[in-house]
Design a protein around this nucleic acid. Sequence first.
DNA 1: ACCAAAAAATGACCACGGTCAATAATAAAT
DNA 2: ATTTATTATTGACCGTGGTCATTTTTTGGT
Lengths: 192, 192
Amino acid sequence: MQKTVQKRTLKTRARLMAASEEVIQKNGYEALRVEEVVQLAGVAKGTFFAHFRDKDALMEIMIADKLNACLDQADDGPKPGTVAEIITALEPVHSFMTSERYVFDLLIRYSGATAIAEIGPIAYCFERYFRVVMMWLDAAEMRKDVPSELLAEGVQAFAIQAMSLRFCALHSATTFTDRLETYLKAWLTPAR
Amino acid sequence: MQKTVQKRTLKTRARLMAASEEVIQKNGYEALRVEEVVQLAGVAKGTFFAHFRDKDALMEIMIADKLNACLDQADDGPKPGTVAEIITALEPVHSFMTSERYVFDLLIRYSGATAIAEIGPIAYCFERYFRVVMMWLDAAEMRKDVPSELLAEGVQAFAIQAMSLRFCALHSATTFTDRLETYLKAWLTPAR
DNA sequence: ACCAAAAAATGACCACGGTCAATAATAAAT
DNA sequence: ATTTATTATTGACCGTGGTCATTTTTTGGT
């Protein structure tokens, strides 16, 4: 049982990803068509699906890539110590996550892995988001009656809630930042 | 400008909904095919789309229907006063929401209205969920440093988080109920 | 250099949601 | 009762994601 991977495989895959990147650059994520990608990459349709389980699998990779870049940015900057600073530090992340409705929906759908074996790139990003925030909280002046893992999970939950409402006309009176700040102050520094 | 609605319209619509109900009973929401519904209802495919904008629009209605029944149940029962009681009271609601991955995803996707004019049946359910919880919280012994609207929004955010993780193999060590209880205790009755 | 086996690529084909010009049924006007 | 305008239905057709038997390319052994 040998299972050599030919170098041509990597080349084809690279071509497909480059083509995808180009297509996304042009019209955004939602408008991406597999047909257009394979045509630009100069391969047959079947080849695409030999490299990616389905269209979503490609999207997961492309979106997680960008999201990781945003998380790098958040990770490299100065450690935020207050709620306002945390929100500012996460701004690029949240901004990308809500850049397209399609992107947000896909992120939510793949935020948890369905099976242990296949923790996807997006689930990994959420894990990273969680860890980054938890580290910040550990060093910051926040409530100490509950472990910081719990606090970080809560930050994630509230961020998702605030982002959801960003798409919602009913609640657009309050801005995303204001809403998230209200949530996080109440969550991280309760008065009682 | 007259716009009479023929009675045959109502009849056709009722047939379509009855057929949908039957199909869903048989194989669940995800497996529903428009073709199967129209065949069972004895109408052409085009007729379906004259009655519902798209497949999702039908799903919204069918799912919101069931969800409203669950909310009725929660609303009619005795008012819960503690975190544990609140979770118990909401159990039928959460149970239905996570009965199928497909259902949960659709709920999240339509939880907020995209435009004021078209607040859909699912967005309405979420509004209802929020109001029911807020009323309970008003009468319960919870933190009073923030308004109960905020508390209720938080409960919703945490419930969604806990439900998301229910689908996630990585976090399946903790049960849904335990996790939600941990969240809500920390949110509603912080020690400081 | 040649051959057999494994890996990769191909494109015709299918499933399914959704559209629309054409047709049929109904209601309103005379 | 007949005509006209409005509303509802039809089904052939399309776009797009995804499949799979077949063909082409690569690899390793001799």
